[in-house]
Design a protein around this nucleic acid. Structure first.
Length: 278
DNA sequence: CGACACTCCTGATGGC
DNA sequence: TGCCATCAGGAGTGTC
């Protein structure tokens, strides 16, 4: 499942291959991809544009096109961007023909992935209503996270997955960050001390940075634009490691469902909160 | 506003 | 071997 490190990996591996190219043609083969906008309106808006640069915000991948418009894509669960795939992908949803003759496919078996054309004047507002601070923003510090957690009483795991508070964390990196910080997924955010908020901030940044360094994590679907797997799944400390020894203390990692999401933690290193007020 | 249930979707998985 | 029910989960929407 692409999270911030996976989306950043896609962006980096694609940047040199799409920047300064023109999108000669685009064909949206699945109307869900851009709904409620029509496929025709997307094709009309994007075709003929130059990709001036690429960027990322949270888990959104952005192509900044000439004429002041932005193609904002989200891979969701199973989306991939594939460069010159052979043969054409079974689940190809969108096809981009670049001016240098190469072809890029947005492939997505589960069809959760999306794309939208946003004008420059609306871009900041588009993200502002969906996303909190970038974890690598210098402003994302101990105090910022501490303040975010005040009066938040849903499980910490759910808090970390809320993109409007912090952008880019998904199921994998939430578990990894909480382990690094030594805090339990069921802990109420409002009960974090300033020191714990600092540890959690550091854990988030370290886990995401390690994920980017490894080229992302492949659990079942994630591929980079060349179809290659990420490597970070082999470096998970707790995620998807039920029953395996904690890397710090050897205690068996536990899995439980929190907020409807599979959640992994070390029962020794991440002490369970005393009581959960209802 | 916060918290949470529900929805989308389909390949993979497990039971019989 | 085959069929069917269940599961996974990011983000948007709706409800209380």
């Amino acid at each position: 499942m692409p999270e911030l490190p996976e989306v950043e990996t896609v962006r980096r591996r694609l940047a040199d291959r799409v920047e300064s190219r023109r999108i000669d043609a685009v064909a949206v083969h699945d109307s869900r991809w851009c709904a409620p906008a029509s496929t025709a309106s997307i094709e009309r808006a994007v075709a003929g544009r130059l990709v001036e640069s690429t960027s990322r915000r949270g888990k959104y991948l952005i192509w900044n096109l000439d004429g002041g418009i932005h193609l904002v894509m989200h891979l969701r669960m199973t989306g991939t961007l594939l460069y010159d795939p052979e043969p054409a992908p079974i689940h190809g949803r969108v096809e981009f023909c670049l001016s240098d003759g190469h072809v890029l496919w947005f492939s997505d078996p589960r069809r959760f992935g999306t794309g939208a054309v946003i004008e420059s004047s609306r871009l900041d507002a588009y993200f502002a209503e969906r996303l909190g601070l970038e974890p690598f923003d210098p402003a994302f510090d101990q105090e910022h996270l501490f303040q975010l957690t005040r009066r938040r009483n849903a499980p910490l795991k759910s808090f970390l997955l809320d993109q409007r508070r912090i952008a880019g964390i998904g199921n994998i990196y939430a578990d990894e960050a909480m382990f690094r910080a030594g805090v339990h997924p069921l802990k109420r955010p409002s009960t974090l001390t300033r020191a714990q908020a600092g540890l959690l901030r550091d854990g988030i940044v370290a886990a995401l940075a390690a994920g980017i360094d490894a080229g992302g994590a492949t659990i079942d679907d994630f591929r980079d634009p060349d179809g290659a797997w990420g490597a970070y799944q082999s470096e998970f400390l707790v995620h998807r490691r039920e029953g395996l020894p904690c890397p710090d203390c050897g205690t068996a990692i536990k899995r439980e469902v929190v907020g409807g999401r599979s959640t992994y933690h070390c029962p020794q290193c991440q002490p369970r909160p005393r009581v959960r007020r209802s």
